[in-house]
């Protein structure tokens, strides 16, 4: 079988638990730092993005309503499957970033550890950040965290695999669903990671991954009324300003994580989860009988 022709893989996008091609039929040829072409990659259009938001919105209620324990299990399962596919990701990273095998392996290991880290926090962050508030009336008053909803995530062209995995694990653990625009020059690991996700009991629509070019879709990410929060993985000042301006229409929560912060070990913190959660405070009347104080 020496003359066997290798089968080349068609990289597609990931929407609602399925792997369609971009509806636009377009593609682009990203290159790595050595100038090598990575392949023909889907150049997603705004309609792909629209479809992805519909899928993410549909999945959000069910995902946020799952028990913390179940969410943790599923994220842990992603880590397990990534561990099993480590060799594949090392090869892809070497291709994509032109790094040594040792560097690539280190990055994959860190990605797996991030997943396990946030899987572990799934049933613990709520206790850390929630609490009963003292109020001077007969009310039981408590605050807790809720997911903000659909989080759209934009990546700079050189945003890497570890940043992607860190963003996904810390955002979905709080019950958010995501539409992600992978880095323009790092689509191989992103789409292959979508296959790992799809094999890990993550409900369709919770994570949606598009490939393409940020300048083309940035405006639609930021203006879409059904997107609740925006995460930008990058540091381009112009992009940041543009996202902030366009997000004002429906008061999206905007967060920017540059490579330095998201790749550092300090990113591993429950406060990263809190970034995409909203505090809900409830006032619950307490009946006062015969001057007895409440039990709370």
């Amino acid at each position: 079988m020496e003359n066997r022709i290798e089968v080349l893989k068609t990289y597609k996008i990931y929407i609602g638990g399925k792997f369609p091609r971009t509806e636009s039929g377009r593609y682009y040829k990203p290159t790595n730092s050595n100038g090598e072409v990575l392949g023909n990659i889907c150049l997603s259009s705004r309609k792909d993005f629209r479809n992805a938001v519909v899928a993410a919105r549909k999945a959000q209620g069910d995902w946020a309503g799952r028990s913390a324990y179940n969410i943790g299990q599923i994220i842990y399962r992603i880590a397990e499957n990534l561990e099993g596919a480590k060799a594949q990701f090392v090869t892809l990273l070497m291709q994509e970033e032109g790094v040594s095998s040792a560097k690539a392996k280190e990055q994959v290991n860190q990605a797996i550890d991030r997943l396990i880290y946030y899987a572990g926090w799934s049933d613990k962050f709520q206790q850390i950040f929630s609490g009963v508030n003292p109020v001077s009336s007969s009310h039981f008053n408590f605050s807790m965290l809720e997911s903000t909803g659909v989080v759209a995530c934009l990546s700079d062209s050189d945003s890497n695999f570890l940043a992607l995995v860190s963003a996904i694990s810390s955002v979905i653990v709080g019950g958010n669903t995501m539409v992600i625009m992978a880095g323009e020059n790092t689509p191989l690991t992103a789409i292959t990671f979508a296959e790992i996700i799809n094999n890990s009991d993550v409900p369709g629509g919770v994570i949606n991954i598009l490939t393409g070019k940020l300048p083309e879709l940035e405006e639609h990410f930021a203006t879409h009324m059904d997107v609740n929060s925006i995460l930008y993985l990058g540091s381009d000042k112009k992009v940041i300003e543009s996202i902030k301006n366009k997000s004002a229409e429906n008061l999206k929560r905007v967060r920017v994580w540059d490579n330095k912060s998201i790749l550092s070990s300090e990113f591993e913190s429950p406060y990263s989860i809190k970034e995409f959660l909203e505090v809900k405070t409830t006032w619950h009347p307490i009946e006062q009988i015969g001057g007895a104080s409440s039990g709370y």
Partner: peptide, 8 residues
């Protein structure tokens, strides 16, 4: 000219 949400 921008995508809308069922919330509104």
């Amino acid at each position: 000219g921008i995508y809308q949400s069922g919330d509104y």
